[in-house]
């Protein structure tokens, strides 16, 4: 059995770990509120944009439809964009996104498609680069700021350029959706060709300048917005997940400290008893 001194050091180290997890939990909780607000504030824009595009798309179809909407008509070369966080210590948050991405990539490969990968966030790169280094094109890091449109633009531009150059037929985005503080689930979203819910009959809109010009401006913007809202949802999900994970860790550390303290006290008591017996039996022998 370990000595009392060893156990005391061990308790000390668990205590300082607990301080760290506790601090991280509080930081995550504070950041979560802002991230959640940002994610929720971004939803109306994305939703309305999808609505406008759906209306436009109902009017424009056939061979004249833009590529971003109609696709290339093939389904061979895929681009998968995987978005995670930069940092870890958030329970299964990143792993669940990466797992969803692996499943998607795996099923595409099994179907004999060509797959290329772009990752956003350090964790996606770390976990996917190992398995798919030959399919990997680029990585974007998030940094510490809340994602903004200007941050997303280069990513969207890269994707659009590649698409315009005819490198891909289908572009898919894998990210996490923020449902609530305790529930985030990964989502696989097809970006290009755009997927539309075809609602009821399209209202008869006038277009200024004209439908094509508007669509050509709207569709690329939509890609940026979709990526942005994915990153914002990720950001909120990350902090929620980190808060839960760190809360658990803090509680576990507390349990461990309790168990170790009891064990240490028992050991110390046993030692004292042993010494007493030795003294008493020594005195009795005299």
């Amino acid at each position: 059995m370990a000595s009392v001194k060893e156990m005391r050091t061990r308790i000390g180290s668990v205590k300082s770990t607990q301080k760290i997890t506790k601090a991280l939990q509080m930081v995550a909780a504070a950041k979560l509120r802002r991230a959640q607000q940002a994610a929720e504030a971004a939803r109306p824009y994305a939703a309305r944009m999808a609505g406008v595009i759906a209306n436009l798309a109902a009017g424009v179809s056939g061979p004249s439809a833009p590529l971003l909407l109609a696709g290339t008509g093939r389904d061979q070369r895929h681009l998968v964009i995987v978005a995670t966080s930069d940092r870890g210590l958030a329970g299964g948050f990143n792993s669940s996104i990466v797992r969803a991405a692996r499943e998607k990539i795996g099923s595409l490969l099994a179907a004999g498609k060509d797959v290329k990968i772009i990752t956003v966030g350090r964790k996606a790169r770390d976990q996917l680069k190992r398995n798919y280094s030959d399919r990997y094109i680029a990585n974007y890091e998030l940094g510490l700021k809340t994602p903004s449109l200007s941050m997303v633009k280069p990513i969207a531009q890269r994707v659009l350029d590649a698409y315009a150059a005819g490198e891909f037929d289908v572009v898919t985005l894998v990210h996490s959706t923020f449902k609530s503080v305790v529930s985030q689930s990964p989502r696989v979203l097809q970006l290009i060709p755009a997927q539309m819910e075809t609602g009821g009959p399209a209202p008869f809109y006038d277009y200024e300048p004209d439908e094509d010009t508007i669509l050509q401006a709207l569709l690329p913007q939509n890609i940026s917005v979709q990526i942005l809202s994915a990153l914002l949802e990720n950001n909120a999900g990350f902090f929620a997940s980190q808060m839960t994970a760190m809360d658990n860790a803090t509680r576990n550390a507390g349990d461990l400290i309790k168990a170790l303290t009891i064990q240490m006290n028992r050991t110390r008591q046993a030692q004292i008893t042993k010494e007493l017996i030795e003294i008493i039996s020594g005195a009795a022998a005299v």
């Binding site: 406008v52 209306n55 436009l56 209202p203 008869f204 809109y205 006038d206 277009y207 200024e208 300048p209 010009t213 508007i214 401006a217």
Partner: peptide, 19 residues
Amino acid sequence: PGTEGYMGVMAGHSPLVST
């Protein structure tokens, strides 16, 4: 500020999508 000029929109405007 529409692409083809400023426009004032009031209730009952005809359906329009504009950049």
